[in-house]
Amino acid sequence: MSFKIAIASSDNQTINEHFGRARHFLIFDLVDSRFTLAEVREIASPHCGGVQHDAAAVENIVELLSDCRLVLASQIGPRVIELLRIKEIKGYAVSGLIDQTLARLASSYEVKNYLKNLE
């Protein structure tokens, strides 16, 4: 299994989108101990159109990202965190430059342990 990260970003530079409002997710994959862009995954209909959250739409987005281990967005609600957790995906609300964050992640224990278990 690969180590994929989904990032919600509207400008491809910073993590600046809410989970629910993102129109697409940047999917990064771990290649040779670095994260590189693998694809841009479109979201058919982002669910945060108004105040009421469409539960089914959220579940769909989570399903769409089920091959990822981490999901990063500028905001993620507690219900989404729980839905992700059920699929053994970790969700974090963070902001900042994508490059820096990925470099940090590449040297984190999450990745180290993953690589260790591959051996």
């Binding site: 970790k90 974090y92 963070v94 964050t101 940090r104 992640l105 984190s108 224990y109 999450e110």
Partner: peptide, 8 residues
């Protein structure tokens, strides 16, 4: 917390 462990 876990977040700081991952991101510093």
């Amino acid at each position: 917390q876990e977040k700081e462990v991952v991101f510093g």
